[in-house]
């Protein structure tokens, strides 16, 4: 059973979707990562400029649903001057929130309602997976 939607499509989520932050391709990126959602065919690319173990800037590109877009907008904001471990830490916090174990930090709490929408959780995890893919050692 899912709760009323307005809590999923909150003003926070809708505002990020209307005017996402850090949207586009980063010209001087050092790392690129792609994640795809098999359910809908969405593709999200994240580009990072890293210095050592620090992510200096992150941007995202791709056509995606409001949940993915809003989450990518928030994540890329959080990744400015963040340690490289941040995407994995935040992803784990999101998954814990979906299980109902904990609240995710900051604006990510806007996605708490996804615990009632298991089919849409993948939408919110897509930006994290793109970030993790970007930092994977390349062949």
């Amino acid at each position: 059973m899912s709760a009323h939607p307005s809590t999923l499509y909150s003003e926070t989520v809708l505002a990020h979707n209307r005017a996402p932050h850090n949207c586009g391709c980063l010209a001087d990126a050092t790392h690129h990562g792609l994640a795809e959602n098999a359910l809908c065919g969405d593709r999200l690319e994240l580009s990072l400029r890293m210095r050592g173990d620090t992510i200096e800037v992150a941007m995202f590109d791709g056509e995606s649903c409001a949940i993915t877009t809003a989450c990518a907008s928030m994540l890329t904001g959080m990744l400015r001057d963040a340690p490289r471990t941040t995407p994995a830490t935040l992803r784990a916090a999101m998954v814990a929130m979906f299980r109902g174990d904990a609240d995710a930090p900051g604006e990510f709490a806007a996605f708490a309602e996804l615990r009632h929408h298991p089919a849409r959780q993948r939408c919110a995890l897509l930006p994290f997976d793109a970030a993790l893919a970007a930092m994977q050692p390349k062949e």
Partner: peptide, 12 residues
């Protein structure tokens, strides 16, 4: 509007 957003919101 993305198909999934439309479907979730129509559901509501």
């Amino acid at each position: 509007a993305h198909a999934h957003d439309i479907a979730t919101l129509l559901d509501h």
